[in-house]
Amino acid sequence: MTPPTPTQTRRGVLPHTFPDPLHAVLLATLRDLGRSLPPGVTLTGTLRPHDPHDPHPPVWDSVGTRLPPLPRTPLHLIPAHAPPRRHAEYRAGRTCAAQALALAGHTGPVPLLPGPHRAPVWPAGFNGSVTHAAGLVLAVAGPQGYQLGIDTEALTPDLHASGLTARDLLTHVLRECAFKATFPARGQPYHPPDFQPAPDSRPGQLAHVHLTGSAPLPVHWTRHGAHVSALTCQPL
């Protein structure tokens, strides 16, 4: 039997609250991935807030500094019937993205409305990526001249019991990261066999994802607690 994907399983099993150690995971993840940021590209993160209607969840940058709230918050367009957790994830992700854009130099409105494929529509001249899993929320933003992708997943007990291994999770995260980075240019639906991560990479080291018909994409990744996170910032 094929194990479910991390996304399929986590939506049904995650609790609504998380222990304080998750904040340490967030800061360590930001620190590790932040080392790979080129000039002009910014990384932010937060935890999924307990209050799904909190307009200003606290956000930290890649060196662990808590950022002041923005004067304008992104529009919150999500069906009212969606569960509170989904509202909290959406709001936290858009808030992180807006903070990353501000750090990258964007000064205009930040609606970040979903596009045809549900990903945020970034302001002219900018690009970015957002991810969330098991309470952790991350966003990267920068000039449009970069392919930017970020992804995080957590090896929860339910996933482990389903037969998913740490290596399976890493492969999934590297593929998702590469897909998000290359989708604006490729415009093709996600097809996992098109993204082949190179094996035997250690946390904190540079991995490469081989794309069908393209040069290998460098991806930095890290693991803290149950979370595996990856980031790519590749010039076009």
Rank of each mutant, 00 (worst) to 15 (best):
Ala92Tyr: 04
Ala92Val: 08
Gly93Thr: 00
Arg94Cys: 02
Arg94Tyr: 01
Arg94Lys: 09
Cys96Lys: 00
Cys96Pro: 05
Cys96Phe: 00
Cys96Glu: 01
Cys96Thr: 02
Ala97Cys: 11
Ala97Gln: 04
Ala98Asn: 08
Ala98Cys: 09
Ala98Phe: 02
Ala98Ser: 12
Ala100Val: 01
Ala100Lys: 01
Leu101Asn: 09
Leu101Tyr: 09
Ala102Asp: 15
Ala102Gly: 10
Leu103Trp: 06
Leu103Asp: 02
Ala104Trp: 04
Gly105Ile: 04
Gly105Trp: 04
Gly105Met: 04
His106Gln: 07
His106Pro: 06
His106Tyr: 05
His106Asn: 09
His106Asp: 07
His106Trp: 14
Thr107Ile: 11
Thr107Phe: 10
Thr107Cys: 10
Gly108Pro: 04
Gly108Tyr: 09
Gly108His: 04
Gly108Val: 04
Gly108Leu: 01
Gly108Ile: 02
Gly108Phe: 00
Pro109Asp: 15
Val110Lys: 13
Val110Ile: 13
Pro111Asn: 08
Pro111Phe: 10
Leu112Tyr: 09
Leu112Ala: 10
Leu113Glu: 14
Leu113Ser: 13
Pro114Met: 04
Pro114Cys: 12
Gly115Pro: 02
Gly115Tyr: 03
Gly115Leu: 01
Pro116Thr: 08
Pro116Val: 00
Arg118Cys: 11
Arg118Leu: 07
Ala119Arg: 12
Ala119Pro: 07
Ala119Leu: 14
Pro120Tyr: 10
Pro120Asn: 03
Pro120Glu: 13
Pro120Asp: 10
Pro120Trp: 00
Val121Lys: 02
Val121Gln: 15
